[in-house]
């Protein structure tokens, strides 16, 4: 159990955990401090320079990098903080492709959130020179695309691939205003070591990394991924009677918000016309649709004829642990053989 730390943000009493940073503590208490490069899953870097605060009247410091300390008085705004933030957000907007209505991140864009918080004055923006940048969009990955023109170089994707996925497929290329995020040698995503898990895509605060087919779910259903026995928690996004998206469950201890490429993007089979929705029984050399009762009865009768060493069971990794247990129990106790195996036993 970590120690509790008491301090104040803008005069409001806050209770935080020792080791927590001020930004996380503020957000946990519904106090918004503008930020772009911070993600609670990742180590803070202080790159966007938006989350500045003043502690006990001192110099501006980044709240994402500053651990909470007992009794401190944190101020989230001051003329110095306002000026620095204002310039930073205006510079970001002048550098950004502002096709918000067509952007996949429109409903969930941190740049828009910060802009809304700071208040954008068109006459101030007009003073700035707009960046002319028209870099090619990388559409090589089947599931998501990368538009470097919308990238704010927060580094969340780079850190996600390093710290969470452990792959290091992404890094920074070039420097200064030419800095871009890219794969080794700046090759297309599909030619890199990227495993398409999409962990970076879900953490991108803007629309730079976005699913190719972003669909807005009308409602969500909490369930478990069917692909393997890990049992990752997911929310299926549903629109009409179709599954249109998958979102990882951050509360499920098995995956804590992470998913693999199959779990996150491999849901097209659900509504696929080739999907089997009824059992098939081979009659006269041809598969014919049958009802479940007929199919189960056929299986039971065949099993009854096959007890002993002529029987073997091969279980699927898609089954849960409990289901796999039942298969081996059934094979040993009912079918009378120890010939049990599993497709994941490589």
């Amino acid at each position: 159990m970590t120690n509790q730390i008491n301090f104040t943000i803008d005069g409001q009493e806050i209770v935080a955990q020792e080791g927590q940073n001020i930004l996380d503590a503020a957000l946990a208490n519904d106090i918004y401090i503008p930020h772009l490069c911070h993600h609670p899953d990742l180590k803070p870097v202080g790159a966007c320079r938006l989350c500045g605060v003043e502690i006990d009247g001192g110099h501006m410091t980044m709240s994402c990098l500053e651990p909470v300390r007992e009794g401190i008085d944190v101020r989230t705004d001051s003329p110095v903080i306002y000026q620095a933030r204002k310039i930073a957000i205006e510079l970001l907007i002048a550098d950004h492709h502002m096709d918000c209505l067509a952007c996949a991140a429109a409903h969930d864009c941190d740049l828009l959130t910060v802009s809304a918080y700071m208040g954008v004055q068109p006459e101030r923006l007009e003073r700035l020179r707009k960046t002319e940048r028209d870099l090619p969009i990388d559409t090589s990955n089947p599931f998501f695309q990368f538009d470097p023109n919308k990238c704010v170089i927060c580094g969340i994707c780079v850190r996600t691939c390093d710290e969470i996925v452990g792959l290091g497929a992404l890094g920074f290329i070039d420097r200064g205003v030419s800095t871009v995020v890219g794969t080794f040698g700046n090759k297309p995503f599909v030619e890199s070591v990227c495993e398409s898990c999409g962990e970076c895509v879900v953490r991108c605060p803007v629309g730079a990394l976005a699913p190719k087919k972003p669909e807005f779910a009308a409602r969500e259903v909490q369930t478990t991924c069917v692909y393997c026995g890990v049992g990752c928690g997911i929310y299926l996004g549903i629109s009409g009677d179709e599954v249109v998206s998958v979102r990882a469950d951050r509360e499920r201890p098995t995956n804590e918000g992470s998913l693999c490429v199959k779990g996150r993007y491999g849901f097209n089979f659900i509504n696929h016309p080739d999907r089997l929705t009824k059992p098939l029984i081979k009659k006269n050399g041809e598969f014919e649709e049958a009802e479940w009762d007929e199919a189960l009865e056929l299986i039971a009768s065949k099993f009854a004829e096959s007890k002993g060493e002529k029987f073997a069971a091969l279980a699927s990794a898609k089954c849960t642990l409990e289901e796999n247990y039942l298969i081996q129990k059934f094979t040993r106790a009912v079918m009378g053989t120890n010939s049990v195996d599993h497709c994941a036993r490589l």
Partner: peptide, 9 residues
């Protein structure tokens, strides 16, 4: 280096 917004942009 391109890391932070004020310097890069």
């Amino acid at each position: 280096c391109g890391k932070c917004v004020p310097c890069r942009l």
